[in-house]
Structure formats: C-alpha cells, structure tokens
Design a protein around this nucleic acid. Structure first.
Length: 299
DNA sequence: TCCCAGGTAGATC
DNA sequence: GATCTACATGGG
C-alpha cells in the first residue's frame, strides 16, 4: 500500500512516487494561511514550530535543506501522505458523479493535518476577511511572537507562537495586529488554552458532535469556524464547513435556488458522509478558481 | 461612496 | 426555530 519512498540526496530529502499530490493545489486551496510561494511549485511552510522549504518536481516532493527525521516523523503526516486518496475519490464518485469535474481538476489536493492551536487562532481571524488578509495577520502575529525560521533576503518566516508566548497575548496586543473586533475572541481562546480548558488533547475520545460542541464554547467560534478547525486541525474528515463560497457553489451545482446553510450541511452529510471534508475542499477550490455563483459570472 | 470578505454574538420576533 | 445588525480593517 505504501508506494512512496523517502530518500536523502545531498542536503535535500526527497519523497518519491507521491500519488494524488499537487503542492500548489494543496497550499492554495484555502485550508492553510501560514505559507509563502517562493517559486513555481515551491513553498515555504510553517506549521506550529516546524518549517519546511519544499518544491515539487513531477511526483517527487523535495525538502530543501531538509532533515530526514523531520520528514518521516512530521511532514509525512502533515501532508496526509499515508492516506490513499484513490479510495476517497472512488468512494465519492460512486455516490455522486457531479463531483467528477472537480476531482479531476483538483486531483492533487491533500487535507493537511495542521496544528490545533494555530488552526483555531487562524480561523477565528478568518471571519469576515479575505484570504490574503488572513495570511498577513497570521504572519504578523508570528513575526511579533514567534521565532525566525527562514530568511532568504526577500522573505522571512516565523514559527507560530507556542505556550505562554501565545497564551499571554492580550486583547490590545491582538488588536495591534489588525485583528479588529476579533481581538476579544482571540483573547478568550488563548485564555482557555492557558487554563488547559481547550487543547488538542481534550478531543481524543470525542466524536464529531461532541468535539464541535466543545469548540463552539469559545467566543467567536460558530458552526463554520468549528467545522474548519475540526477538519484541518483535528482530523475530523466528515466536517463540511459552509461559508459564503460553499453556499454559492452548492446552490449553483445542486439546489438551483437560495438554500440555507443548515440545509446544505444536512445534504452534504447524506451525500458525502464520512468523506464530506474531502468533497468540501474539491468543491471549494474548484468553485473559487472558476468563480462559480459569483454575480458577475452568473448565467 | 458603497459593497464585500472562508462569520458570529446578541437582540428580536 | 429563523432573521437582522454591528462588529474592524482593507480592497475593488
């Protein structure tokens, strides 16, 4: 089942024979905000305290100046490389061939296994903001409170703050990072993290509904952000976040009329089941790329 | 000047 | 339950 191979080549680490993988689609599909495009199919990526400089050439992913243990013990899991996406695509298409075009075009999306705290904070920031702004704010926070891990003279990158470096950030300090009205929400989140009321560990034995209820206790976390954190930061792959884009896209493809987010989520559960999160990313990235349902693009 | 952005809390019915 | 609005900030 494991077809890829990890090898060392001078200062670089290579993962060869990766299937169903495209670094650009994976980074740009809106699930992650802490990366910089450094060239064609080349990215600098921060996840928590980890940093990787990667470049894809055909079915090989190259970690420049990489450390083999870091690749084996961290990045393989981060990129979800041990999961067989052939099975997922087949499962989705058996149930619903409306997804064929989206899956064919976005064939190389992987759902990243991101750090819980960074994912939660990033998606609280994301509300009512555009993706470039979210990226800016995550970078600003990291530059302010994290450690430098990359600097090529043009771009510098910093780890996402951890422990008290994160938990002790005040509402005022969050506000200085241009988070606006979300600053109070962010302070509530880090306060709960500091008291260990919220941490990645509390979800270990929770099912999807229980985990979602726990997340929604945090101020500024509602149905959509909770689903994003569940999907991208906690591994609940049945989560199906519905935002303004998904609403437009689902209405355009399936409903052909104004439909509530609640109804869309119920439909998604019946249609995609445990593969909901994957379907969501294929649809989301395809829909945004082709501006599906956007007014100027309608009819 | 107006409208919108990977939404949510609080008020209101 | 479903709907309405204010909420900072930035860009088109």
């Amino acid at each position: 089942m494991k077809k890829y191979k990890v090898i060392q080549a001078d200062k670089n680490i290579l993962i060869e024979n990766i299937e169903d993988f495209n670094i650009e689609q994976t980074m740009e599909c809106g699930q992650c905000f802490h990366f910089v495009k450094l060239g064609d199919m080349e990215y600098g990526i921060v996840s928590g305290e980890h940093f990787a400089h990667v470049k894809q050439e055909k079915d090989t992913l190259i970690f420049l100046d990489g450390v083999i243990d870091e690749v084996n013990n961290y990045w393989i899991h981060y990129f979800d490389i041990d999961r067989d996406y052939g099975i997922i695509k087949k499962g989705l298409l058996e149930k619903d061939d409306a997804l064929k075009e989206m899956i064919d075009e976005m064939y190389g999306i992987r759902i990243l296994n991101q750090e819980f705290e960074e994912t939660l904070i990033s998606f609280i920031i994301s509300q009512n903001k555009q993706i470039p702004h979210i990226k800016q704010i995550v970078s600003m926070l990291s530059k302010q409170y994290g450690k430098k891990v990359f600097d090529n003279g043009k771009v510098d990158m910093y780890t996402f703050p951890k422990g008290n470096n994160l938990y002790d950030i005040t509402e005022e300090q969050f506000r200085q990072c241009k988070t606006g009205f979300r600053a109070a929400y962010l302070e509530d989140a880090v306060t709960r993290m500091k008291s260990a009321q919220i941490s990645g560990d509390i979800f270990t034995n929770m099912n999807y509904e229980e985990a979602k209820d726990a997340l929604i206790q945090i101020k500024g976390v509602g149905e959509k952000i909770a689903n994003c954190v569940l999907l991208f930061g906690l591994g609940y792959r049945e989560a199906f976040p519905v935002d303004v884009w998904m609403k437009r896209i689902m209405e355009d493809i399936y409903f052909k009329k104004e439909t509530s987010k609640e109804e869309i989520m119920r439909f998604a559960w019946e249609q995609y089941g445990k593969y909901g999160g994957y379907a969501q990313q294929y649809l989301f990235h395809y829909g945004r790329t082709h501006a599906i349902g956007v007014k100027s693009n309608k009819k």
